[in-house]
Design a protein around this nucleic acid. Structure first.
Length: 459
RNA sequence: GGCUGGGUUGCAGAAUGGUUAUGCAGCGGCCUGCAAAGCCGUCUACGCCGGUUCGAUUCCGGCCCCAGCCUCCA
């Protein structure tokens, strides 16, 4: 039985989809004004894993991940760059897709963009006004009247009065209540704008997700996810908007992914202590980064360090070494217990570290069979299959182990040295043979002799 | 201050009321021309104080510490 930790109830719950056999999943994606950093990568990889596992579990999954392509940061960045907003967002959407692809993240079923869903956004704001949950302010903005929505604060575990203590009042605010939040921002000169019954402007951040999620998945759907930092106010506001507008429950299960941290501190744009995905990919292979992310539970903080990434690389190398000499087999064979253990781990709130431990048990059993490739092949097939559920182990083992040349020796240069060494070995010239091996080692190339055959891999 | 997570062996990181997590690193052995890889064996735990229990790292209470949210942020 699949159990998921629901941030709303703050406990693990048995997962039952609204429509039998179908899961409707919405995840808050990126605001596209800059490159993805590791925090974004974690959310993308985690929900990719969730979607893959749910599908493997037999559910039909509709996975929606939105793109925020209009907001203050985008407008400001475009202004700084002297760049057209559309060009800026197109550029970073492209970059995001490249990063996601590198990390083995499958495209969601749809990636709705705020600017392409303006009618539905306007419709929802209209409904909220009609129902008395929203009001137009003197400055042309439209606000959500938080006190009108009784359950407000349920997700974040706060009461309105608690929230009010911390609320900041900006100069020149036109809100009736400092906790109210903006649904529609009146256009300022030179800014992108859309026509509305309340005057030209653009949507607030929260409304787009309410509009797009309910448009794509219906008023009431199964799982809504995002980073931990979206819990409040973003997701709280989504609930308020959506439930007030539709009159139905919005989401059954809320999933929040923990932060990527650097030196025990949240990696974030405002602190400036972040690594972009592309920076990290210059130093580690994408699959290593994916392993690093899945190597800890999705709700735990994940501390980034070179050592941890190096550890992920070593672990992944061990898995690939076990697959290296196996002939591909189609069937998993007598490996049902591994499948069961794997599923038991994943069923427990997507416990990927536990699932990975099962892959290592499989690896040990493959290695024990050693030269008996025929016996090991079905185990190898199971290892690859289960790895695939996590989006891992789908590369050619030899290609993964050889890595890429970077600024070191090329494949051809290595082959030449390996051939020279094999020649020396044939002549039992151990001095020369070991010298060549040390030379390669110094260049980060590791040799393995199996009888007269030598294989190599980059460290 | 309020709220939400969390404190596990050298590092990373799970589970669990009594019995091996797992990976990396270490140590001993096997294998190897020597290595590497692999296999076998092995060492280092469960923030503090109480309580429940035959028995608690695991449940309960209190405390300390860390991170995050309460303001844009995945």
């Amino acid at each position: 039985m699949l159990q998921i930790y629901n941030s709303f109830s703050r406990q693990k719950e048995a997962f039952t989809p609204i429509a039998p056999g179908q899961v409707r999943l919405y995840v808050c994606g990126m605001t596209v004004y800059d490159y993805c950093h590791l925090g974004h990568a974690r959310v993308m990889v985690v929900f990719d894993m969730v979607a893959r596992y749910l599908r493997d579990r037999g559910f039909k999954v509709t996975y929606i991940r939105n793109i925020t392509d209009i907001d203050d940061k985008i407008i400001n960045r475009a202004k700084e760059n002297g760049e057209d907003i559309g060009a800026l967002t197109a550029r970073f959407i492209q970059a995001m897709n490249e990063d996601a692809h590198a990390l083995g993240v499958l495209p969601p079923d749809a990636e709705p963009r705020a600017t392409q869903h303006m009618p539905h956004i306007l419709e929802m704001i209209g409904t909220l006004l009609e129902k008395g949950y929203a009001y137009p302010a003197k400055n042309g903005d439209v606000y959500y009247r938080v006190r009108q929505f009784k359950p407000y604060g349920a997700l974040s575990g706060k009461t309105l009065d608690e929230l009010k203590i911390g609320a900041r009042v900006e100069v020149g605010e036109a809100k009736d209540d400092p906790l109210d939040f903006v649904l529609w921002k009146a256009a300022k000169p030179g800014e992108p704008q859309w026509d509305s019954a309340w005057g030209p402007g653009r949507p607030g951040w929260h409304i787009e997700c309410s509009a797009m999620s309910t448009e794509c998945l219906g008023s009431h759907f199964d799982i809504h996810g995002g980073g931990m930092d979206l819990k409040f106010p973003h997701h709280e506001n989504e609930i308020a908007q959506s439930e007030a507008a539709t009159g139905e429950p919005f989401v059954n299960t809320w999933m929040h992914v923990g932060f990527v941290q650097l030196d025990k501190e949240k990696m974030s744009k405002s602190l400036g202590n972040f690594f972009t995905v592309r920076e990290v990919l210059k130093r580690f292979e994408p699959e290593v980064v994916r392993y690093f992310i899945l190597g800890s539970h999705y709700r735990s903080p994940l501390d980034y360090s070179d050592d941890t990434l190096q550890g992920a690389k070593s672990a992944l190398t061990r898995l690939y070494l076990a697959l290296k000499d196996l002939t591909p087999a189609r069937e998993g064979g007598a490996s049902a217990t591994y499948e069961e253990k794997f599923q038991a781990a994943m069923d427990d709130d997507f416990n990927t570290p536990g699932a990975l431990a099962v892959l290592f048990e499989l690896t040990r059993d493959i290695n024990k069979l050693g030269a008996d490739g025929a016996a090991a092949a079905p185990l190898g097939a199971t290892l690859r299959r289960l790895g695939g559920v996590l989006g891992l182990l789908q590369s050619d083992p030899r290609m993964f182990l050889r890595g890429s040349a970077d600024d070191s020796l090329s494949d051809a240069q290595i082959e030449v040295l390996v051939a020279k060494r094999s020649e020396a070995r044939r002549n039992k010239n151990w001095g020369e043979s070991d010298r060549l091996r040390d030379e390669l080692k110094a260049q980060g190339v590791i040799l393995e002799d199996t009888g007269s055959q030598t294989t190599w891999r980059r460290q």
